[in-house]
Design a binder for these strands. Sequence first.
DNA 1: CCGATAGTTTGCGATAGCGCAAAACGGGAC
DNA 2: GTCCCGTTTTGCGCTATCGCAAACTATCGG
Lengths: 236, 236
Amino acid sequence: MAKVDTSLVAHLPLFAGVTPEALDEILREARSARYPKNSAIFEQGADAQSFFLLLHGHVRAAKTTPTGEQIVVRYVAPGETFGLAMAIGAVQYPATAIAVDDSVVLIWPTSAWPRLVERFPSLAANTLQTVGARLQESHTRILEMSTQQVEQRVAHALLRLAKQSGKKLDHGIEIDFPISRQDIAQMTGTTLHTVSRILSGWESQGLVESGRQRIILRDPHRIVVLAERSADSGAA
Amino acid sequence: MAKVDTSLVAHLPLFAGVTPEALDEILREARSARYPKNSAIFEQGADAQSFFLLLHGHVRAAKTTPTGEQIVVRYVAPGETFGLAMAIGAVQYPATAIAVDDSVVLIWPTSAWPRLVERFPSLAANTLQTVGARLQESHTRILEMSTQQVEQRVAHALLRLAKQSGKKLDHGIEIDFPISRQDIAQMTGTTLHTVSRILSGWESQGLVESGRQRIILRDPHRIVVLAERSADSGAA
DNA sequence: CCGATAGTTTGCGATAGCGCAAAACGGGAC
DNA sequence: GTCCCGTTTTGCGCTATCGCAAACTATCGG
């Protein structure tokens, strides 16, 4: 069992209110693992034997319908937990987790959760907060899907990604993991074709610069404007 | 401060693992109140000064956009909590809660939450479970909005309502609180017109019987079939 | 009992976005 | 350096669903 450096994770919201000694104890129950790019960390429907904390890299959580369609539930950034099925009372993972970049995670056995929560109640409180925040995001997403057109939804999605995982460049903000048109379509409830058309349009207006699984927001401010306008005209 | 009968609420998931004495102590911090039909319990954006447990009646939680459009986040049934903004770290209510029927609720001051959680850690664990369940429902809803057509989404919504708040009749299942076409539209991301058309169609096929703010599922089984089919034909 | 009001139904264009198909493109593997 | 494969782009017809408008109808208050 690899020793994990507490200083790397002590500041995370998950461990707020946890003493260094307690943190040490918590980390002793975890092991770490590396997942190469495009490898599955767990599959939807599998028994939830572990829960995870992402240290490095990026993970995509996606949900699949019986007929094979997928949506992206969220992208996990370093410092975030995922696969918390047990905390919410699920026996199986409700989604599939794939490393979209070479990633390093901490892994706890699900069985350790009740004990940890009992010894360190703030873990439950902290987890409640993060799950609550995700619930709010989901509601926001539902609101957007109900009331906005595709272009605005894509704008919102990109802005969110930029905020969560944006790398500042001198000429814009780059989303710093590989993401395809298809992925964005699955985040916004549309098709890769429509996303491609939208990005092409934006590119010709200098709003973004994009390529194969790569997007740079060149003019975030104008994208914010796009995201917020209700339905008026906008052709050049 | 009205005395609340513990026997009425002892069996709720929220209080699982809480001793009768503890429950008594928890309830002593609450007061109860009655909200008449169509009255607001709290407004989106208001300071979250209380959290609630519904005893009788039904409550609609709805989220409004800056431009005035609304979606229904969920319907609250007796025994469920709502307005848990503080537990998830929000200072203001993210949605508006309206009693859709004469309703009775228990009300705790937000300020009591940290103390209650400290004394009774299972409260946090139980709340985590319910919030987690709601998160999953939200994801399911997003999945549906992304991959299904309106008719299927409406079918799913009605089936869910029937399961949560259905009253068994000899000739079907009635949703036992007033719900309009508009409400269903706001649950499924469509317009009241489209919902009306769909229900009219179903009514003529004997699937449902409906009227002003009233819906009876006459043939739940066939509605399940409707909800599940992907996109094939179905005209009589 | 009757009128006012909120909810419902329905018709009819308009259109955003889908779905299919095919071509162009870019990057990595060998 | 070249080939191959996954990704992206783009054209084009189609249709589910919206949006507006107007008529209709229960229900409730008085």
